[in-house]
Amino acid sequence: MAEVVPLEVKIRRYNPEVSESAWWDTFHLEVEPTDRLLDALHEVKWRHDGTLALRRSCAHGICGSDAMLINGRNLLACKVLVKDVAPKVTVEPIRGLPVLKDLIVDMEPFFAQYRSVLPYLINDSGEPDRERPQSPEERERYDDTTKCILCAACTTSCPIYWGDEGYVGPAAIVNAHRFIFDSRDESAKDRLRILGEKSGVFRCRTTFNCTEDCPRGIKVTKAIQEVKRAILFERM
C-alpha cells in the first residue's frame, strides 16, 4: 500500500438551486502525498459529495481548466501536490468572475476581453508559397507569451480587475503581446490603440500578482510593460 496522509479540504460552495448564499464544506481525506490536489478534489466528488462542481480535463497543467484559489493563491489544482499543502487546504473559485456553481465561474467575460484585442495573426500582404521567414531571434521575441493557456489565473489575481470589470486584464494583454511582437503580424498599431484606451494597459499598477500566479511561468508584468512602452514610444 502506498503511503497516505490526512488532508482536510475546505471548499467554498455555491449552488443557486440550493441556497442564495455561498457556504463552506470541509472534507477529511486520506490521500497520497504525491497525489495532485485535483486527485483530492476528485476523491471528494467521487466518494463524498457528487454534487461538487469543478472544471478539469488534462490534469497536467496544459488545458487551463482548473484554475482555483488555493490557500489564497491562484493555482491549477492539477499542478499542486498534496504534500505541498497537507494537512489543510482551502479551495475557492477564482475571483472577479461570476460564480455559477461551486468552483465553476462564468468564463464569458474573460473570453470577451481576450477576443477584444484581435488575438489572431493579421497579415494582408499576400501569402507566399512557402513559410514566411522568421529568424530564431524574431521567433524568440514573443516566445514567452505563446505559452498562455487562457486559464485566467493571472487576470483573476489582479486587484485592478477585481475592482473594474471593464479592465481588459493581464491575459488579454499577454495574447495581444504575442502578436504585437510577432515579426509576421501587421496590425500591432490596431492592438496598441485598443490597449491604449482607458480600459487597457495603463490600468495596470504593476502589482506582479499576475506574474506570480501564472502556472506557465510567463513574465506577465514584463509583457504588460513592453506593451505600455510600445504605446508610449510607438516602437516594437
Partner: peptide, 16 residues
C-alpha cells in the same frame, strides 16, 4: 498553419 501564425521553431536561415 504557419501562415495563420503558428510559431514554429526556426532554423538559422528562418525556415521551419
Amino acid at each position: 498553419l504557419e501562415h495563420w501564425g503558428l510559431p514554429f521553431n526556426r532554423t538559422p536561415d528562418g525556415k521551419i
